[in-house]
Each structure stands twice: as structure tokens, then as C-alpha cells.
Design a binder for these strands. Structure first.
Lengths: 253, 253
DNA sequence: TTACAATTGTGTACCAATTACACCATGCAT
DNA sequence: ATGCATGGTGTAATTGGTACACAATTGTAA
């Protein structure tokens, strides 16, 4: 909980270094072994949760800003990030609760202005992440998609748009490079897809299809130690993977 | 060509009414009878062309802003608009030439700041449009895609991203409602697709596919007066069309 | 050690969608 | 009436997607 003086300093500094009226909100999807969660922060004096976000430095490219913001919140560099929509309703605002809003006059209040927010979604392995609260939150943590809290502002809309976009883009984009270990089995990769899409896929058809993309290398070894038949290991063929990211996986017309 | 005083007034007013640091750029694709053009403005003292664009009023939703900007530039209301990307490099700027930039000190110069630009593309029938220059242009006109001029700033990137996005979205979105007359023939609609994609399509397969979408009504009449066999007329089934716009034309996984 | 349960590897038959392709009909121009 | 350009339509071949079953491996429990 910030004091009035801390707030004043905070806002004064923000006005100095950040571009006004532009913000970034990130929907960070975390995956691990069939689980899918979303990174959220709990407002430190409201029962409302919000998405990681921040502002753009005056001379900073927006992609860099998104990277920087997520680096602070998660500890991870070079996260897979995808811009997906701008949220620009005039009545959305970055301020995180009414209490702060009233503590300073409006014109001094960097946060109590209109912000156009650029929405990004990110995909990470949540075991690699160290969730770190910001100055307005008492908690930064993973929330299960089936147990979402009350969202602040338009953050539920942002979250849902991100999820829809992710599911749509799964059809045209390869995925998983930064979510799977270096070597992984086909069932493990399938579980990732099933988790994102929230539905079961046919093992054989999944395999045929994903192999058809040509983005996997089949390794000689199998994964020992499991309680059952040892599955083959695969790794991503990075060259083809990158190419597929650029060119997409399907054509049309 | 604006005088220094006019510029001062312009900028003073802009700072009053517009949100700083946020702009909109629109790639307006115009179609008519197999032609495809893009609406551009010619800077009034540089050999550089730019895309229609503008700013967001302090309390205006961004979609409204895009509508408003295009209404002024084209005379058309309720244009089909699609947000496709934010362009946020720190060295892009809305200022339209260096001459204006030097006429006033930097801090008074609304335009000489960093702008994050939200890219929209629009699809119109260019016979419905009255191209109207803005204060920084001597000319507002349609340019053929095969004969593009030198672009200002990052407007070539914006244009190309828009075109790529349009072609991609053609696979998932119905198109043509606001580009075709109320009643049209199948070959006419096909020509629209061929124009956008810049390639020939097979007549029979095109017909089967587009009919399969269920967004067309086949009418009883045929188009008389042509030099050849009279083709059937079609109109859009608006209800299905709207539904298809929302839900997309294909699934995946 | 053996039987069992769980999981993986693999192939095929069916249906749907896409592609390639050809013939006939219409209507104006001569 | 004939020719020519265009529009209407159907079918076969290919490709892609879906549904589905059986054999092999491995650890565990009897």
C-alpha cells in the first residue's frame, strides 16, 4: 500500500519517463504438464484482479516495452509475445483502484487519464516464471482458467479476446517451442494442444498432422522410466519452425 | 501550404482536443470492376505520399475515431474497417514534412512527438468516394497497386501489412457486401476476389465454394444487356453474412 | 514369473473438400 | 446461320480430415 507521498513521486516519475495515454496489457498463459493458467495480480485494496501491464518509455519500441514489462513480472527474457488487439474505450483506465484515484488531483495523476492499451498475449512454461507483484498489487500469481477471479476494468474482455485469438492462431501457427522441454514426446505435445483447445484430440490424427508440418525431428531415443511403453522423443526443427511461424501453416484460396 | 500562424493555431487546437501520442492510419482499399486502388495523400511540399490518418479525440472510442477520419477523407459513413496492427516504433512520427517541423519549437509542436499508430484497413467501392485532401496535402487520390509512389515514414510497411492481412483474412471472412452493388453476378464477385488476391481462380470451383458459405441468395433474374449469355444475379444474404463475419468461415483442429 | 493395466506405435477405410478439367447454352456480331 | 465470347453446370482424381482397432512395451501386483 503506497502512501500519498510515494504515489506523488511515482506519478511524477511516470509522467517524466513514460509516454502518456499508451499502455500495454499482457495475457500471460502459463503451461506445464497439461495445465494452463494465466498470470494475474491482485489489487492491494480491492477484491479485483488485473493482468500484467505497464507503460511505454518515451523512446522505446512497443515490443521492447512488452518484453521489459514481462521480464519484471516473470523473470523471463525473450518471451513469445503476440500483439492481438488494441483496447481503446475512453472509459477504460489504468488506475487500479478508486482510493488512489482520489488521493491526488486529477491533473497530477498520471494514471487517471485515458489509456489506449495494446494487448499482447504471451506463452510460457509456468515453472520458469517467478511471479512478482507490482506496486499496486499484493499478489502476483497463476490463476487456473477454470477458477478465474473478478477482473478489474476491461481485463476480462482482454483475457477472453487473447484466448480466442490464441485458439484461432493455433490453426496457422506452430506453437510449443518455448513451452516444451528440448526433448519431448508426442503425447506431451498433444497434451499442450488439448490443454489450449480444451478438448481431446485423436492421437493418431494429431501425430500425422503435426508431423506433416515438418517442424519436428524424431530422435532415436525413447523416454525411459515411465510406467509404460517408452515413447519416442522429438525436438523442434528450429529452422522449419521459424519458417512456419512466418509463413503460416496453411494456405487458402 | 499553411502559414506559421495557421500552424500555431492548428497545433494549439490539436493539443486541446486530441489524445497525445496516439494516432490512426488507415489503408483504404478501393475496388471497382476489377480494379484495386489505395487512397493516398500527397504531401504539399515533398515528393512523398502518405495514408489517410488522424488522431483520437480525448473522449472518443478508437473505432469512432477511425470512422470519423475516413468520413472526412472519403465522404463515406460506416465504412468496413478492420484493425490489424499497431505501429509503434519510436522514430515514426506523424509530422508530414521537415519544413513544418522546424517552424515551431518542439514543445509546441503537437505533431513532432512520438505517435503510436493504430492501423486499420478499409474496403470501399471507389466510385462512392470523394477523395478530400487534408491540411498537409495538396492531393488526395487513388493510386493503383501496381504504381505506388514513394511513401512517407513507415507508411509502406503499414500498407503492406494491411494487404497481407486482407489476403489472409479472405480465407476466414466473407467480403464484398459493401463493395458490390445490391445485385451482382458470380463472375463479378469472382473478379473481386481475383483482384484482391492478384491471381486467377477457377470459375466452377469459386462458385461451389462461395455458394457453400451460404451467404448468397440466387435471384430469379439474369443480367440482360451484356454481349453474351445473361448471367444470374445474386445478392448477399445479410443475416448469414453477418453471422459468417462473426464466426469465421472455417474451423481447424 | 506371470498376468494385467496403462500407455505407445502404427495403418486403413471412409467421407469431405479441393482441384482439374470439358461440354453445352446463350446472345450479340457478322 | 455461323462464329465468338461468355456463362452454366458436372465429374473424376487427389488431397486432407476423421474415425477407428490391434499389436507392442513397460511397470506393477499377484
Amino acid at each position: 500500500m503506497l502512501t500519498k507521498q510515494e504515489l506523488e513521486e511515482f506519478w511524477a516519475e511516470a509522467s517524466e519517463i513514460y509516454l502518456n495515454h499508451v499502455s500495454i496489457d499482457c495475457v500471460v498463459f502459463g503451461f506445464h504438464e497439461g495445465q494452463m493458467k494465466v498470470l494475474m495480480l491482485k489489487s492491494n485494496n480491492e477484491e479485483a484482479w488485473y493482468l500484467p501491464g505497464g507503460f511505454v518509455l518515451k523512446k522505446e519500441p512497443i515490443e521492447k516495452a512488452a518484453d521489459r514489462i514481462l521480464k519484471v513480472r516473470t523473470g523471463i527474457d525473450k518471451i513469445f509475445l503476440q500483439q492481438f488487439r488494441v483496447f481503446g474505450d475512453p472509459d477504460r483506465s489504468k488506475i487500479h483502484n478508486d482510493m488512489y484515484r482520489d488521493m491526488l488531483p486529477k491533473e497530477q495523476n498520471f494514471f487517471d487519464q485515458r489509456f489506449i492499451s495494446i494487448g499482447y498475449y504471451a506463452l510460457v512454461d509456468f515453472f520458469n516464471v517467478t511471479p512478482t507483484p507490482d506496486d499496486f498489487s499484493e499478489l502476483c500469481t497463476w490463476r487456473d482458467l477454470n477458477d478465474l477471479p473478478k477482473f478489474q476494468l476491461d481485463h476480462r474482455l482482454i483475457f477472453e479476446t487473447a484466448l480466442d485469438t490464441l485458439r484461432l492462431q493455433l490453426n496457422y501457427q506452430p506453437i510449443g517451442y518455448n513451452l516444451m522441454p528440448k526433448e519431448f514426446t508426442m503425447p506431451e505435445l498433444q497434451k499442450l494442444y488439448e490443454t489450449i483447445l480444451d478438448k481431446k484430440l485423436d492421437r493418431r490424427n494429431f501425430q500425422r498432422r503435426i508431423l506433416g508440418f515438418g517442424i519436428l525431428n524424431k530422435l532415436e531415443q525413447t523416454r525411459k522410466g515411465g510406467a509404460h511403453k517408452a515413447p519416442y522423443l522429438y525436438s523442434f526443427n528450429l529452422e522449419n519452425y521459424q519458417a512456419a511461424l512466418k509463413e503460416g501453416l496453411k494456405s487458402g484460396w
